[in-house]
Write a protein that binds this DNA or RNA. Structure first.
Lengths: 214, 214
DNA sequence: GTCTATAGGATGATAGAC
DNA sequence: GTCTATCATCCTATAGAC
């Protein structure tokens, strides 16, 4: 865990121009903001201005660094996928725990909930197929995850499929922010307990709250 | 979003206005068009103009009938959900087939693939939580489906959960239009066979093709 | 590396005729 | 019931200074 946290990003007092950063540092900061904003509003719904505000830079500067909104989304999507794969691979690495690979990858997936908008940005990308550039990239990303499960993690097709399915349900429920309603309706509680038999407290804690993407 | 609109005006001879319909008939026609367009482009990405063209009416008339784009989306979402529930209930009704309820509902879910954009419109709605009006409606719709599984279909929580999960995976894959790539890459074929063990030919046949939403 | 100002294009909604 | 014309708003991207 060495990447800058969202809190650090938001820690600069309003009105105080952030210190000059290297291009790479800014890129990283803006990508995290973009993942949060795209996750909350979707590709079309997000504005480069909102991303800029979340990253505390000016809107034209975001465009300057990434060229176009389309490129910004592609970069955010790639970054989200890369973080996911990295975390999956770390979970696979031989460790002392007795848990099976599926369990460890599952936990890694849940821990990614702490990166605001990550799962939702990916979910949005899966719905952008009619876009000539983003569509193919999203398809490639999805099949890459499948390949990882089959080849690197060594899961059989049945296990891989149900793993993927549970992941989709999980991110849908998180995207819906039903977490926010936990404790308010018996049916929602039941749904949650069915989905997260033991990890529920952890999940509730990990998911960032608040309507604003940052 | 980019893709230029196909000249579906060619479907009706230029200058020939469609026949006058009753308000209800038009509403129905526009809702089907809206489900297709919202499914393909999302709430923000869809334009009232594209919906209008798909329904072969003028853009202001769509607004006239539904008030606002927001209302149009809500109506499309409700219509999609209503069609789904109707088809689920029909599947539950006592029939001569020997198949268990889950199998019959699953088939009903798959058959809904023939309504262009239906599953994708619902998937989009699940990502609109930050919207003050659509968000709550989407959450209500999702929990309604859960209640149906539990109470009307009588599924236990475990069965209901995995049913929901498989449904999410299915609609994600359809949304991604990986169907279009079937036969082009071994990994995609494998994924498909894992997801639709026997219904695959039926699925490939049901899903509407083409980039345009209508 | 970063900003301000702004051009230029799209789109939701309204007015009003037939 | 349905259309044409049009306004007002918002947003991406460019220009150019510091």
């Amino acid at each position: 865990m060495s990447s800058p946290s969202v809190d650090e990003v938001a820690a600069t007092p309003a009105g105080t121009p952030g210190r000059r950063l290297s291009s790479d540092e800014r890129r990283e900061q803006i990508l995290l903001a973009a993942i949060a904003v795209f996750g909350a509003r979707g590709y079309v719904g997000a504005t480069t201005d909102e991303v800029a505000r979340a990253a505390e830079v000016s809107q034209p500067y975001v465009v300057r660094l990434f060229g176009t909104k389309e490129n910004l989304f592609l970069a955010a999507m790639d970054d989200a996928l890369a973080r996911m794969m990295k975390s999956f691979r770390a979970a696979l690495a031989p460790d002392t725990s007795e848990q099976p690979a599926t369990k460890r990858i599952g936990n890694a997936y849940i821990e990614l909930l702490s990166i605001r908008g990550l799962h939702q940005t990916l979910a949005h990308s899966y719905l952008l197929v009619s876009h000539p550039v983003i569509g193919p990239a999203a398809r490639a990303g999805f099949t890459m995850v499948w390949s990882f499960f089959r080849e690197e993690a060594g899961l059989d097709t049945e296990t891989a499929r149900s793993f993927l399915a549970e992941g989709m349900l999980l991110s849908t429920m998180i995207g819906l922010r039903l977490v926010d309603d936990y404790g308010t309706e018996p049916e929602i509680d039941e749904l949650f307990h069915a989905c997260f038999p033991t990890e529920l407290p952890q999940v509730l804690e990990l998911v960032p709250r608040g309507d604003e993407p940052w």
